[in-house]
Design a protein around this nucleic acid. Structure first.
Length: 541
RNA sequence: GCCCCUGUAGCUCAGCUGGACAGAGCAGCUGCCUUCUAAGCAGUUGGUCGCAGGUUCGAAUCCUGCCGGGGGCGCCA
C-alpha cells in the first residue's frame, strides 16, 4: 500500500534525519484529523521528536516544515503548525481523484485486498453448538461473526479453513437418547433431560432399538441436520464438520495421554489420571481420565487440537467460544505448551453472552427445558442480512441484549436498510444512466478534478480508507469495524445523493461523467464491505 | 478468593497501540419530496467518559485501588 499517508510518513522520516534524529515510523502517526479544518492529514511527529531533541515541540515542527517546504510531498499545498505541535497537511484534491482511479481500476475483486496473511494456514472453529437440539439465538449469535472473520482473513491473504466441532458423544448424547426413548414410551422427560418439543417430534420418527446410545446418536444426527439447515439460511457454510466421536474412536486421545505421560505430566490418582497443567500456568490440575475410565471432555479436546496442529498442519488455530467456556482456555493453552505446540499459536476468542429481551422483559431460557428462541425463527423474521448485521454491529467483547420486539417491529432501527438503501441508490443511478443511453468515456478521459463538492470530497476520503479498515478489522478480529465503516459511508453517500445530482439538465456532461465514476467507485467499495459481512447488496428496494 | 469481559448522552453502542473543543444511531424538537427511490437529507436539544489516585507537555484511552454489571473457576460437555 503506497498511500499518501505512507509517502508523508517517509518524507517525515527524511526530515527527521536532516535534523539528526531517527525515529521509528511506528512511534508517530500520520492520520486523518477529526476535523477537516486541520487539513487532510496530520502528524504528531514533532511532539514525539521533541523529547529526543530536547526542544519545544513547536520549534521542532517549524524545522520539519522548513524541510518539507524545500522537499514537498506530492500534492502538498501548504502546511500548518497547530495546537501543541501538530503538523497539518493541506493537499491538492488530486490525490483523492488519483485514489478513485485506483478503486475503479482494481474493482470489486482486488480493491481493499491485503497480503498481510502471506498465505498462512489458519483454522477457524466456531459455533460448534452441541447437537442436542436446534440452534438457538444464544448459541448462534456469534456464528455470523465467525463467518465474517473468515471472509476478512481470506481477503487479507490467509488460507482459512472453517470448522464446526460436533460434540456427538458423551453424557449429553446419552441423556438425549434417554429423553427420546422416554417420549417414545409416552413417559415424561426427567428434570435433567431435554424437554423441548423437537424431542417429541423426533421420537415419533424414531424406529430404532431401545438403547440410549443408539437413540442419542440418531437424534444427534437429526439435530445436526436441523442445525445445518439453519446455518444455511444464514448463508454460513463450514468447510469441515468434525466429529468428536471420530477423535475418540481413532485412539488419538490415548496417544495424547501417552505423550503427556512420557513427559511426566500425567499422574495416576486411584483409577483417574491427572494432567499437571498448573506447570503451564493453569489455576489447577485437570483430570483427563475419570474414575470409571472414560476420557474427560478436555482429553478429547486436547487430542482434537493436536489433530489440528500436528496431523493437519495448521500454523494457527482460532477458536471462537462462548464466554461460558472461559474455563477451558487456560487448560487448553497449558496443554498446547505441554505437548510442544506453543500456546501462542492457539488463539481463543470469547464471545460475550447474549441475552434476549422482549420489550422490558428479560427472556429466561434453557436448552434442557426447550423454551428458547430458535435462531431460525429470528432469521425467518428478519432475513439473513439483517440478522447477520445485528450481531456484526458490536464488539464481540461486549455482552449484548437483543430486544426481539424492537428488532422485529422498528425495522427502521436496523442499519441494514440504511446501508442496503445506499447501494440500491447507486444501482438506481446506473440503471437510469443506461436508460438514458449515457455512454461512459474511457476512464482516462474523465475529468475527475471536477469532483470538489464537499459531499464528493467527504465521500472520497471515506472511500480511500476502506483498505486500512479491512486490515485493521482483520488484525483486531473485529468485523464490526466493517459495519461501522459501512454505516458511515452510507450516510455520506445519502448526503451526496441528496445534494449532488449526477444526471440532470443542470449538470454539465463532464461533471456527470465524473460523478458516475465516483458512484462506480462507491459501489465497488460498498460491495466489498457487504461481501465481507455476508450481507446481500440489493439492486433495488 | 482467583480469572475473563464490561461501565461513555434517556436508550443501543463507536472512540481505548494517549493527542487538538468527547462521536453516531434511536428517542425528542424543527425544517426539506416538479429532477437519479423521502427506507432519505438538513438543523437542534442532550454527557461530572462509574469513583479516587498516579504516570505524562497532554488521559475516555496507560497504571493502581475501590464500586457496579455479565461470565467462569467439574471426574458436565
Amino acid at each position: 500500500m503506497s498511500s499518501v499517508q505512507d509517502v508523508i510518513a517517509s518524507s517525515l522520516s527524511a526530515a527527521l534525519e536532516s535534523l539528526g534524529v531517527r525515529i521509528d515510523p511506528s512511534q508517530f502517526v500520520v492520520e486523518r484529523p477529526a476535523r477537516i479544518e486541520h487539513g487532510e492529514f496530520a502528524t504528531n511527529v514533532a511532539m514525539v521528536a521533541a523529547k529526543q531533541l530536547g526542544e519545544k515541540p513547536r520549534s521542532v515542527a517549524e524545522r520539519i516544515c522548513e524541510y518539507l517546504g524545500r522537499n514537498p510531498v506530492k500534492y502538498q499545498q501548504r502546511l500548518e503548525i497547530a495546537g501543541p505541535g501538530f503538523i497539518n497537511f493541506f493537499l491538492d484534491y488530486g490525490y483523492l481523484h488519483e485514489e478513485l482511479v485506483q478503486v475503479v481500476t482494481l474493482g470489486e475483486d482486488q480493491f481493499a485486498r491485503s497480503g498481510i496473511g502471506s498465505g498462512e494456514r489458519v483454522q477457524l472453529e466456531f459455533c460448534s453448538a452441541n447437537p442436542t437440539g436446534p440452534l438457538h439465538v444464544g448459541n448462534g449469535w456469534w456464528a455470523s461473526y465467525g463467518d465474517a472473520l473468515a471472509r476478512l482473513l481470506r481477503r487479507c491473504g490467509y488460507d482459512v479453513s472453517t470448522e464446526y466441532y460436533v460434540n456427538d458423544t458423551g453424557g449429553q448424547i446419552r441423556r438425549l437418547g434417554e429423553s427420546l426413548l422416554a417420549r417414545r414410551a409416552g413417559r415424561e422427560v426427567e428434570e435433567e433431560g431435554y424437554q423441548g418439543d423437537y424431542v417429541r417430534e423426533l421420537a415419533a420418527r424414531y424406529s430404532g432399538p431401545d438403547d440410549v446410545v443408539d437413540a442419542g446418536k440418531w437424534a444427534a444426527e437429526k439435530n445436526l441436520e436441523t442445525i445445518k439447515s439453519s446455518l444455511d439460511k444464514l448463508g454460513i457454510h463450514f468447510d469441515v464438520w468434525f466429529s468428536q466421536a471420530s477423535i475418540e474412536e481413532s485412539g488419538a486421545v490415548q496417544e495424547i495421554l501417552d505423550l503427556l505421560d512420557s513427559k511426566g505430566l500425567l499422574v495416576e490418582e486411584d483409577s483417574k489420571k491427572l494432567f499437571l497443567s498448573t506447570r503451564f500456568g493453569d489455576s489447577r490440575d485437570r483430570y483427563l481420565v475419570k474414575a470409571e475410565g472414560d476420557f474427560t471432555y478436555l482429553a478429547g479436546d486436547i487430542a482434537y487440537h493436536y489433530n489440528k496442529f500436528v496431523v493437519r498442519g495448521f500454523q494457527r488455530v482460532i477458536d471462537i467460544f462462548g464466554a461460558d467456556h472461559h474455563g477451558q482456555v487456560a487448560s487448553l493453552k497449558a496443554a498446547m505448551d505441554a505437548i510442544g505446540i506453543g500456546s501462542e499459536r492457539l488463539e481463543i476468542i470469547l464471545g460475550q453472552m447474549v441475552s434476549l429481551l422482549s420489550g422490558a422483559d428479560r427472556l429466561k431460557f434453557s436448552k434442557r427445558k426447550g423454551n428458547l428462541i430458535p435462531l431460525e425463527d429470528l432469521v425467518d423474521e428478519l432475513g439473513p442480512s439483517a440478522t447477520r448485521l445485528l450481531s456484526l454491529s458490536t464488539s464481540i467483547d461486549r455482552a449484548t441484549s437483543v430486544d426481539i420486539e424492537k428488532v422485529k417491529a422498528e425495522s427502521m432501527d436496523n442499519p441494514v436498510y440504511y446501508i442496503q438503501y445506499a447501494h440500491a441508490r447507486m444501482a438506481s443511478i446506473e440503471r437510469v444512466r443506461d436508460q438514458r443511453g449515457i455512454e461512459m468515456p474511457d476512464l482516462s478521459q474523465i475529468n475527475l478534478s471536477l469532483l470538489v463538492h464537499p459531499r464528493e470530497l467527504a465521500l472520497l476520503r471515506e472511500l480511500t480508507i476502506l483498505p486500512e479498515v479491512v486490515e485493521e478489522a482483520a488484525i483486531d478480529r473485529a468485523p464490526y469495524k466493517i459495519t461501522n465503516w459501512l454505516k458511515e459511508f452510507s450516510g455520506l453517500f445519502h448526503s451526496f445523493y441528496h445534494d449532488c445530482y449526477v444526471m440532470s439538465d443542470a449538470v454539465e456532461m463532464e461533471l456527470t461523467y465524473a460523478r458516475l465514476c465516483l458512484v462506480a467507485g462507491c459501489k465497488v467499495a460498498v460491495r466489498v464491505a457487504l461481501s465481507l459481512l455476508g450481507v446481500e447488496a440489493l439492486e433495488q428496494m
